[in-house]
Amino acid sequence: MADSKENLTIHINEAWCKGCGICIAFCPKKVLGFNENGKVTMLDRENCIKCGMCQMRCPDFAIFLGGKE
């Protein structure tokens, strides 16, 4: 599990984000925030534990865990 998480990172599709803030509010590590467009952005990638809570509750498929590019 640790190994598979190593290769994962949070991806954000800003074009699909509607800025509802649900992922930001329920992130257990509070690593997400709003950018200047009112959309979600990763503020602290180092402290992200890749739990996938944001992906789970995003109504818009705008944030998700995927392979590092």
Binding site: K18, I22, C58, P59, D60, G66
Partner: peptide, 27 residues
């Protein structure tokens, strides 16, 4: 890179959906 669930089970050309910001329906 695309959302894995969206890519496998949704019509990508129809997304993003038109539900309001914060609507629970997408979840």
């Amino acid at each position: 890179m695309n959302h894995p669930l969206a890519e496998g089970f949704f019509r990508m050309e129809k997304l993003p959906h038109i539900w309001c910001p914060g609507c629970g329906h997408g979840i």
